Simulated scan of single mutants.
Amino acid sequence: MEWWSVHRSSYPLLWKVARDVLPAQASSVPCERVFSASKQTTTAQRNALRPELVEKLQILKFGLKQCDLDFTGGWIEPLEEMPGATDNGNEDF
């Protein structure tokens, strides 16, 4: 890609093609991982899921695995804000 970036003005059309083709994955492993992950989602009990829903579930599952999503992070209330909490950090129940 560096060579094509340097010579992009000499070969503008070939540079566009190289930019689109060279970064492509040379392995099918990422694709196979997607199919394996979707197999866990679309089990025999869930065989009636619409493709759009399966896609959304896969995106959510990927986000959770990458720790990009946190659905419970805001649920835990700090001790100071809990009803009946005292100054020394002990609860007054």
Results as ranks from 00 to 15, higher is better:
Met1Thr: 11
Met1Asn: 08
Trp3Glu: 09
Trp3Thr: 13
Trp4Pro: 06
Val6Gly: 03
Val6Gln: 09
Val6Cys: 02
His7Pro: 02
His7Arg: 04
His7Ala: 12
His7Asp: 03
Ser9Cys: 03
Ser10Tyr: 03
Tyr11Arg: 02
Pro12Ala: 08
Pro12Val: 13
Pro12Asn: 07
Pro12Ile: 13
Leu14Thr: 02
Trp15Leu: 00
Trp15Gln: 06
Lys16Met: 08
Lys16Leu: 11
Val17Asp: 01
Val17Pro: 00
Val17Tyr: 04
Ala18Trp: 05
Asp20Glu: 08
Asp20Ser: 12
Val21Cys: 04
Val21Thr: 05
Leu22Ile: 15
Leu22Ala: 13
Ala24Glu: 09
Ala24Gln: 12
Ala24Met: 13
Gln25Ile: 01
Gln25Glu: 14
Ala26Thr: 15
Ser27Gln: 12
Ser27Thr: 15
Val29His: 05
Val29Gln: 10
Pro30Thr: 03
Pro30Ser: 05
Cys31Gly: 14
Cys31Val: 12
Cys31Ser: 10
Arg33Phe: 08
Arg33Ile: 06
Val34Trp: 05
Val34Leu: 14
Phe35Arg: 04
Ser36Asp: 08
Ser36Glu: 07
Lys39Val: 00
Gln40Thr: 06
Gln40Phe: 09
Thr41Met: 14
Thr42Phe: 01
Thr42Ile: 06
Thr42Cys: 14
Thr43Met: 05
Thr43Asn: 04
Ala44Asp: 12
Arg46Asn: 05
Arg46Glu: 02
Arg46Asp: 02
Arg46Pro: 03
Asn47Cys: 14
Asn47Thr: 02
Ala48Glu: 06
Leu49Asn: 11
Arg50His: 15
Arg50Phe: 11
Arg50Ile: 07
Pro51Asn: 12
Glu52Ser: 14
Glu52Lys: 07
Glu52Trp: 10
Leu53Pro: 01
Leu53Asp: 03
Val54Ser: 02
Glu55Leu: 15
Glu55Thr: 15
Glu55Trp: 02
Lys56His: 08
Gln58Leu: 15
Ile59Val: 13
Lys61Glu: 03
Lys61Pro: 00
Lys61Ser: 06
Phe62Gln: 09
Leu64Gln: 05
Lys65Glu: 09
Cys67Met: 05
Cys67Leu: 10
Asp68Ile: 10
Asp68Val: 10
Asp68Ser: 07
Asp70Pro: 00
Phe71Cys: 01
Phe71Lys: 01
Phe71Leu: 14
Thr72His: 03
Thr72Ala: 06
Thr72Lys: 06
Gly73His: 01
Gly73Met: 02
Gly73Cys: 04
Gly73Lys: 08
Gly74Thr: 09
Gly74Ala: 13
Pro78Glu: 09
Glu80Gln: 11
Met82Ile: 12
Met82Val: 13
Pro83Ser: 03
Gly84Thr: 06
Ala85Val: 07
Ala85Ile: 07
Ala85Tyr: 02
Thr86Trp: 02
Thr86Arg: 15
Thr86Ala: 13
Thr86Lys: 15
Asp87Phe: 09
Asn88Lys: 12
Asn88Ile: 09
Asn88Gln: 11
Phe93Gly: 08
Phe93Ser: 07
